[in-house]
Design a protein around this nucleic acid. Structure first.
Lengths: 166, 166
DNA sequence: AGTGAAAGTACAGCTGA
DNA sequence: TCAGCTGTACTTTCACT
């Protein structure tokens, strides 16, 4: 099972840094119950092993003038691998598209988009997304309000599972 | 317009910290072109003003044993405000639900969920989500693969808009 | 600029295969 | 015995006034 290579201290480090990524190393060390140098070594190891992919400030999109958030469900005409990849590459080049996930089921992709206002999203939709080769159907849904937006994974669920598999 | 109270240096700070939230203050100061002390003051101000809501390590869910990511589209039977709020509160209490957004259109909510494997998601779906009061329809879509997953907002779009509104 | 704290390094001791 | 991890001591760099 994945995650087995990590001991409880490593998992605690990840949980703490997920909750506060700018915590100092000494504070982190205190919380996980070891001294600072080995704690720092563990963090570096976790970074190099890819368990930590990066650190990001969580900025307030609305305050910065991105008032609109939209989910777009996209269906393609051809689902050949080359066409799927081409669409994914296109998404990476659209700054308003923040996330793009390929799905099973009726729809091929879900896109999470941000935009300064409705009209700028509409112009993205009509003159970019809908005019892209191979794009069949697009259904968009405005986010009325956000109810929950937690980053990463629930470490308490992970600990629960690991303690059961003893 | 929102974002106007920030000068170009503030926006640069936000962009840099969004890209690397664990950067030291001196490195940040160097990149935005001012000396360290005023840079730190700006960061504190941005934090207190809510432009920066937090800092998070971006952990690899798969490596940690969360192999499955699912989008769930949820329709409620009653859309009265009290019922909407009750469902949102329920979502906050489900650790597998990482995001919950209220949408316009046919569907009331989109949920982004993670789970260790398909069977644990199924048991969440059937014994938690589907048995919740007032939940009408639920359509789930497995994420086959992720194509893009960028945090936050596109600062280049913001700069473009601001330079046009001169 | 200056002080106090944290990051990072070197080395020695402990622990378990 | 040896590998791996830990903690102490020390230097450099950073945070903060």
């Amino acid at each position: 099972m994945a995650g087995t290579r990590l001991d409880p201290i490593d998992r605690k480090i990840l949980a703490e840094l997920q909750a506060d990524g700018r915590m100092t190393n000494v504070e982190l060390a205190k919380r996980v119950g070891i001294s600072a140098p080995p704690c720092l070594r563990r963090v570096r190891t976790l970074e190099e092993a890819g368990y930590i992919k990066g650190y990001h400030a969580d900025v307030d999109a609305r305050e910065l003038g991105f008032e609109v958030q939209v989910f777009a469900m996209v269906g393609l005409q051809s689902q050949a691998e080359a066409d799927l990849s081409a669409f994914e590459e296109q998404c990476r080049n659209w700054p308003l598209v923040r996330e793009c996930h390929m799905l099973n089921g009726e729809v091929d992709f879900v896109l999470k988009c941000v935009a300064p206002d409705l009209s700028s999203f509409q112009s993205f939709l009509t003159s970019e997304l809908l005019t892209t080769d191979n794009v069949g159907s697009v259904k968009t849904s405005l986010v009325i309000r956000g109810a929950k937006d937690e980053p990463g994974v629930p470490f308490d669920v992970l600990e629960e599972r690991l303690s059961q598999s003893d």
